[in-house]
Amino acid sequence: MNAEAQKLKVHLAEMLKGGVILDVTNAEQARLAEDAGAAAVMALERVPSDIRREGGVARMAAIERIEEVRKTVSIPVMAKCRIGHFVEARVLEALAVDFVDESEVLTPADDQHHIDKHAFRVPFVCGARDLGEALRRIGEGAAMLRTKGEAGSGNIVEAVRHLRQIGRELRELAAAPADERMARAKALGAPYDLVVQVAESGRLPVPNFAAGGIATPADAALCMALGAESVFVGSGIFKSDDPAARARAIVRATTHWQDAAEVLAASRGLGAAMPGLAIETLTASERLANRGW
């Protein structure tokens, strides 16, 4: 792997910090996102809650859909490919999107292997529920991580679980004696060199953002308070009563997450949030976070 190339990929992720990345499905939504102050958009065919409701196989978005979004905005444009579908990823790279999300929201193409992301010039973001999963994805070349949360649920509990889990495991690893690192690498199922790097620095070598279930300004601020460096919002905007107001409010709460008066002000007058799902009502196969490993 070329260390210089990997650094460039991580640097773009650094520039998205403190911002919001919004899912959009057409030019009109993309314009709304940029006007609301989004730092990037994710161009996709259907938002996660629609994918969940309609079922069937969810794939990379139609090319025209991504091009339509890109023509509309000047902020970075991301797009999703299926887990393990390295040809969809190559197509997105040839299209010159700014970031590829190898996403569990789409139907996995490979149930054993994620994409070798070092083989690409385009940076990747991947989902992770815990430190082992995070380090496996970084080992494969991911330049940014996000919690998996439970996409399209409008329920923040899974994103919180993943942020807490990764934070706890980072602290434990940093506190562990050096001669326990190999055993910890084994238990985490993570590359030893990355385990050593994280143990010594006390933090992940790439930014970690929150995703999956963010529906309110307070949800976004909660994720930031738990250590997320930025947030992805999918169904939470365009499945709510007033998408423009909610998008602006979530962007505001993400910048001012430490200031309750600002989060309060951002929370006023938004109308109804998206309807939510109780996680325990979902069967194992309906839980998108269980996709990938």
Binding site: M15, G18, A39, P76, T255, H256
Partner: peptide, 15 residues
């Protein structure tokens, strides 16, 4: 700093 100048202008005006 660096980042997205459009996002910064929106935030600057808002705040």
């Amino acid at each position: 700093p660096g980042g997205e100048s459009t996002a910064m202008l929106t935030g600057l005006a808002r705040d």
